[in-house]
């Protein structure tokens, strides 16, 4: 009880200072200058219509490479940590429900197509590689739930993931070789608002989408495998 009161007192202090900082920031006013630069130059410099995508992939592309690396490390670390857990074997008695099985038959291709759509159109519409990859992984999650004996081939998952990661670095190195900057936009900018425009942005988002999709599928499979053996 005394602990809870103490924590509440602490929260009041933290909340007071947070609120006093927050109140001093005007809501809905223009704040940064760098944002203005990006908005003015995104079409001229990158050819991409979606300014957020241009920032994530081109202006801050190196940062995104680090982000992909962090995601890869998390998936690998989870597999390594869970590899040592005890395995208790117990067979499933009931089967997945009929609705789940039939629904997955129709929804799985739709999930794959929708995920590919999201990462192919990352430079035109909201979305991009990360949500697209996760939508694909959610298709595989449905498959895991509907068919308990289904297992994605781990070797293939790893091969696809590594190839995608290497392609990302390779695209960056080609930019370094041709333009002198890592991840330089060495392809033509094209006309804005077309599917084949914005240089390397669609390429990198396809690579990120495939990588995130296979990574997250592997992560969910790692989590599931120990579940099934309980």
């Amino acid at each position: 009880m005394i602990r809870k009161l103490f924590v509440l007192f602490l929260l009041v202090i933290v909340g007071f200072f947070l609120a006093s900082v927050v109140v001093s920031v005007p809501f809905g006013a223009e704040k940064t200058i760098v944002g203005r630069y990006y908005l003015n130059n995104t079409i001229g410099e990158t050819g991409g219509v979606n300014a957020v995508t241009s920032i994530v992939v081109l202006y801050r592309g190196f940062d995104t490479l680090g982000e992909v690396t962090v995601l890869f490390l998390a998936a690998t670390g989870l597999a390594a940590i869970l590899a040592n857990t005890r395995e208790k074997r117990k067979k499933h008695k009931e089967k997945p429900s009929l609705i789940m099985r039939v629904g997955t038959d129709y929804l799985f291709p739709a999930a794959i197509v929708f995920g590919s759509y999201i990462f192919l159109h990352g430079h035109l519409t909201p979305g991009g590689g990360f949500p697209g990859g996760v939508v694909i992984a959610s298709g595989f999650l449905m498959l895991f739930l509907a068919q308990w004996h289904y297992k994605a081939d781990e070797l293939w998952l790893k091969v696809i993931e590594s190839l995608a990661g290497m392609t990302y670095v390779l695209i960056g190195l080609i930019g370094l070789w041709k333009l002198g900057t890592f991840l330089g936009n060495f392809l033509g900018k094209g006309t804005p608002n077309m599917l084949l425009s914005a240089g390397i942005i669609p390429l990198i988002y396809i690579v990120i989408g495939i990588k995130v999709g296979s990574e997250m599928t592997g992560l969910l499979q790692n989590l599931r495998e120990t579940t099934e053996n309980e």
């Binding site: 979606n50 957020v52 995508t53 999201i118 909201p126 979305g127 991009g128 990360f130 949500p131 996760v134 939508v135 959610s138």
Partner: peptide
Amino acid sequence: APDVAITQASI
């Protein structure tokens, strides 16, 4: 922020 919204909804 539709980009962030779609990422938050899926991830």
